[in-house]
């Protein structure tokens, strides 16, 4: 067996996994693509173990370990995905953008997907400054509710979702 054939298959499988991680929006599909990448690595390990005739079988043992770690990773990843779904009612990765600063600029989460918001930051600094300084004082005036207003729609969903799920679990 030439080593080239399995290794090329592994490289192509890894590239397909990279495409899936980058191009998919659903979080579970991203997890599946991560599994594809892990399987590419497993195939590499097995092939090199057989090629090098490792006396300790390091490659195959490490493959077994990676399979176990992948099982743990999928379990934890799905728990995180379910927690996100319970709080946000969506697992769309493009819409989970709480850690970005664009939500403070525009309320629509779908608008800046196509257009590059990079130059939008320094250019639109005029209307930005009151909103951008909002997290600085950390919401000191409680009557400042119009500012987090555009970010509100997940929050009632999260309350309703939490209550609903708790009623389901209870």
């Amino acid at each position: 067996m030439h080593v080239v054939y399995p290794v090329v298959v592994s490289a192509l499988l890894f590239s397909i996994g990279v495409y899936g991680v980058l191009a998919r929006r659903n979080a579970i599909l991203v997890l599946m693509s991560v599994e594809l990448m892990l399987n590419a690595v497993n195939l590499n390990l097995v092939v090199f173990d057989i090629w090098l005739r490792d006396r300790l079988h390091g490659g195959q043992v490490l493959t077994l370990f990676i399979i176990v770690i992948a099982a743990a990773e999928v379990g934890l990843g799905l728990a995180i995905v379910l927690s996100v779904f319970r709080n946000r009612r969506t697992i769309d990765i493009d819409r989970l953008r709480d850690l970005t600063e664009r939500d403070l600029i525009g309320p629509g989460p779908d608008a800046p997907v196509g257009s590059d918001p990079g130059p939008d930051g320094p250019l639109g600094s005029g209307p930005d400054t009151p909103v951008g300084s909002g997290p600085g004082p950390a919401g000191a005036p409680p009557g400042d509710s119009p500012d987090p207003g555009p970010a509100d729609p997940p929050a009632p969903g999260s309350e309703g979702g939490a209550v609903l799920d708790r009623s389901e679990a209870g």
């Binding site: 980058l22 191009a23 998919r24 929006r25 769309d92 990765i93 493009d94 997907v113």
Partner: peptide, 10 residues
């Protein structure tokens, strides 16, 4: 809507 907007880059 399973595919993201950055499919070409992917």
């Amino acid at each position: 809507d399973l595919d993201s907007g950055n499919r070409a880059a992917a």
